Simulated assay, not measured.
Amino acid sequence: MSKYLVDKFLYTVDRDPELVERYREDPRGTVAWWEAERANVILNCHGAESSSWLRFEESERDALSTHDYPALFDLGAHPFLTLTLFIAMFERDHPPLGFQREYARRLSDRTLPYPDIAT
């Protein structure tokens, strides 16, 4: 798994309100677009520098494409990146702190040690 690439997706989408809405409404299309157009752009790099080898594994693509944050957690995605993006997308559908409670409930069956979140 490329924890770096999954975390990069979560980080970059979370910082762009238009991408947050796009990802909420069309997760599969947004993941496919981002992988093709943005995955290989070097973060914090000015100019046209990019790499050419980064791709999601099928399990990562599936979890991202279905908003499956428990699966992303199990794959080692950084929980703070996952939580902040999914709050931005789904907090409006819940009462105050409702999404955070739902997030915690859906991850409550996980036990230590958690997946390594180092990249």
Rank of each mutant, 00 (worst) to 15 (best):
S2L: 08
K3H: 11
K3N: 12
L5C: 06
K8W: 03
K8F: 07
L10V: 02
V13A: 06
D14C: 12
L19E: 15
L19A: 15
V20Y: 06
E21G: 04
R24P: 01
D26Q: 14
P27C: 10
V31L: 09
V31P: 01
L43W: 04
A48Y: 10
E49K: 08
S50Q: 15
S51R: 13
L54W: 09
R55P: 00
R55Y: 10
R55K: 15
F56D: 05
F56C: 06
F56W: 10
E57C: 02
E57P: 00
S59A: 15
S59L: 13
S59H: 03
E60G: 03
R61H: 13
D62V: 13
D62K: 13
L64F: 08
S65F: 04
S65T: 02
H67R: 09
D68H: 04
Y69D: 04
L75M: 14
G76L: 11
G76K: 09
G76A: 11
A77K: 08
A77S: 14
H78D: 15
H78Y: 10
P79C: 08
F80S: 10
F80A: 14
L81N: 13
F86V: 08
F86H: 15
I87P: 00
M89A: 03
E91Y: 04
E91G: 00
R92Y: 01
P95W: 04
P96R: 12
P96C: 04
E102Y: 10
E102V: 01
Y103S: 01
R105S: 06
R106W: 01
R106A: 03
L107T: 01
S108D: 06
D109C: 00
D109W: 09
L112D: 03
P113W: 09
P113H: 04
Y114S: 04
Y114M: 05
I117D: 02
I117C: 03
A118I: 03
T119W: 07
